[in-house]
């Protein structure tokens, strides 16, 4: 924790573990991240298990008739949310790599990710 402009800055980690369209978790999480960005905290996002599918390239929802929110992850940079971590093991079992992601991400092994999680002040799980 550090003081900045009089306010306390906490480390917030959003943990995303659900695929994008089967449930509403992914979209809700993204919305909370965008709203939360206004509070200028130390934010990072973790993508684990089916959560990695949220960032998969090539999503096309036209025929399904719902909003494709995958382009919005590319706007996170404008919101000063730049720390996106994707779990290596989750990518591997799904046959995906960093090249398949819609945004630049940092690949992290589960052990390293667990340590990172331990160093957070607040964890929001979706």
């Amino acid at each position: 924790m550090s003081e900045m402009e009089g306010g306390i800055v906490k480390k917030f980690l959003y943990v995303n573990r659900k695929a994008p369209y089967g449930t509403v978790y992914a979209q809700e999480s993204l919305e909370v991240v965008l709203i939360g960005a206004a509070f200028e905290q130390d934010v990072s996002l973790a993508f684990i298990d089916d959560g990695v599918y949220q960032l998969a390239k090539g999503q096309d929802t036209k025929a399904l008739g719902v909003k494709n929110f995958s382009p919005t992850y590319r706007a996170l940079e404008d919101y000063d949310v730049t720390k996106l971590f994707v779990e290596k093991e989750s990518l591997e079992v799904r046959g995906l790599s960093a090249d398949d992601m819609v945004v630049p991400v940092t690949i992290m092994g589960a052990q390293e990710m667990a340590e990172y999680m331990n160093g957070q002040d607040v964890i929001l799980s979706f």
Binding site: L34, A37, A38, K67, N68, F69, P71, T72, R74, A75, D78, Y79
Partner: peptide, 16 residues
């Protein structure tokens, strides 16, 4: 911006 990112940006983001 909406066409590109599928969101209307927050005012802070818009200004920047």
């Amino acid at each position: 911006y909406y066409e590109e990112y599928q969101i209307a940006p927050a005012v802070r983001v818009l200004t920047k």
